[in-house]
C-alpha cells in the first residue's frame, strides 16, 4: 500500500466516520438502525449547493481563499442546521411514538422514511448525479514525496475538528454525561431527573448536524452526488460503526478510517478490476466482524438489555 492510497483512504474514511457517528449515537441511545441517516446526509449536500453558489460566482473566476473559507463555513453551518432540524422532526414524527412498540416497527418506519426522503430528493434534483459547485481553487502540495491536495487537507482537518468537538461534547459536558446516562439505562436516567425525550432529540440533532456538515466536505471532495448517494454511503458507514463497536463513538471514528482505507486499497488492486469488487470486500468485513467479534474493535461484550 503506497502513501497516496493511504491518504485518499483516510480522506474517504473521515467522511465515513462522520456518518458512522450518527448511526452509532442513535443506536447507542435507542437501539435503532436509523436507515434515514444516509439520506439526511444527501439532503445536507443538496441544501449546501445554493449556499455556495450564492457566495462564490460559478462563472470561472477564481475565488480567493477568504471567499472559499467563508463559503464552505456558511454552507456547513446551513447544511448542519437544516439536517439537524430534519433529523429531530423525523424522530418526533416517525420514531418517538414507536419507542415502546415491538422492535420491528421503528426499523420498518425508518426504511419508510428513507424511501420517502430518497424519492423526494429524486423529484427535486432529478435522477442524474448533480455536480457540486467549486468552492475551493484546486491546488496541491508535495509532502514526503506524495502529493496532497488542499481538498484532502480540508476534509481531514474538518472531520478531525468535528470528531474532536463531539468527543469533548460527549465526554466533558454535563449534557454529554446525560446522553451517556440515557444510553446506559433510560429508565434510571429519567429517575435521576434527566429529560429523556430531550436527550434523544438532542442525539438526533447532533448526529444529523454532523451528517449535514460532513456532506459539504463530501461534495467538495467528490465533486458530484446523486439522490441515492446516501444509501450506499450509509450502508458503508453502518459497517464502520459495527466494525468499531456499535454505540461506541471513538469506535465509529476508527471503523470509518479502516473502511475508507480498505475501499481505496481494494479499488486500486488489479489494474482497476478492484473497483468492481470493493463493495463486496467492505461487506465481507461486516459479515466477518459479526461472526468473529460482534462487539467490534472497541466495544465491550455487554449483555443485551432486557
Amino acid at each position: 500500500m503506497t502513501l497516496d492510497v493511504l491518504i485518499s483512504g483516510v480522506v474517504l474514511g473521515s467522511l465515513y466516520a462522520i456518518v458512522a457517528l450518527g448511526y452509532t449515537m442513535v443506536y447507542g441511545i435507542i437501539e435503532l438502525i436509523n436507515f434515514a441517516h444516509g439520506d439526511v446526509f444527501t439532503l445536507g449536500a443538496f441544501i449546501s449547493i445554493p449556499v455556495i453558489q450564492a457566495i462564490i460566482s460559478q462563472n470561472g473566476s477564481t475565488p480567493t481563499l477568504g471567499q472559499s473559507i467563508f463559503a464552505i463555513g456558511a454552507a456547513m453551518v446551513v447544511a448542519a442546521l437544516c439536517c439537524a432540524v430534519v433529523g429531530v422532526v423525523i424522530e418526533r414524527v416517525a420514531y418517538r411514538r414507536l419507542r415502546n412498540a415491538p422492535r420491528l416497527a421503528p426499523l420498518i418506519t425508518a426504511i419508510g422514511v428513507s424511501l420517502i426522503m430518497e424519492n423526494a430528493m429524486a423529484q427535486w434534483q432529478g435522477g442524474l448525479p448533480v455536480f457540486y459547485p467549486t468552492a475551493l481553487q484546486p491546488s496541491s502540495y508535495t509532502i514526503l514525496g506524495t502529493t496532497l491536495t488542499n481538498t484532502q487537507i480540508l476534509v481531514i482537518l474538518g472531520a478531525l475538528a468535528m470528531m474532536l468537538g463531539l468527543d469533548m461534547f460527549v465526554n466533558r459536558t454535563t449534557i454529554g454525561k446525560a446522553m451517556r446516562a440515557v444510553a446506559q439505562d433510560r429508565e434510571a436516567a429519567s429517575m435521576m431527573g434527566i429529560n429523556v425525550n430531550f436527550i434523544i432529540s438532542l442525539t438526533f440533532f447532533v448526529g444529523s448536524a454532523l451528517a449535514g456538515a460532513g456532506a459539504v466536505l463530501y461534495g467538495i471532495d467528490l465533486g458530484s452526488l446523486g439522490y441515492d448517494s446516501g444509501f450506499t454511503l450509509g450502508l458503508f458507514a453502518f459497517t464502520a460503526a459495527v466494525l468499531g463497536g456499535i454505540g461506541n463513538i471513538r469506535g465509529a471514528m476508527i471503523g470509518g478510517l479502516i473502511i475508507g482505507i480498505l475501499q481505496e486499497y481494494v479499488s486500486g488492486l488489479g489494474n482497476g478490476v478492484g473497483t468492481e469488487w470493493y463493495d463486496t470486500a467492505i461487506f465481507s468485513v461486516l459479515v466477518l466482524i459479526l461472526v468473529f467479534r460482534p462487539s467490534g474493535i472497541l466495544g465491550t461484550n455487554t449483555a443485551e438489555k432486557v
Partner: peptide, 13 residues
C-alpha cells in the same frame, strides 16, 4: 418509492 415509504410509515404508526 415515496408512496411505498408512506405506506410503511403510516401502517406502522
Amino acid at each position: 418509492p415515496m408512496i411505498f415509504g408512506i405506506i410503511l410509515v403510516l401502517m406502522m404508526l
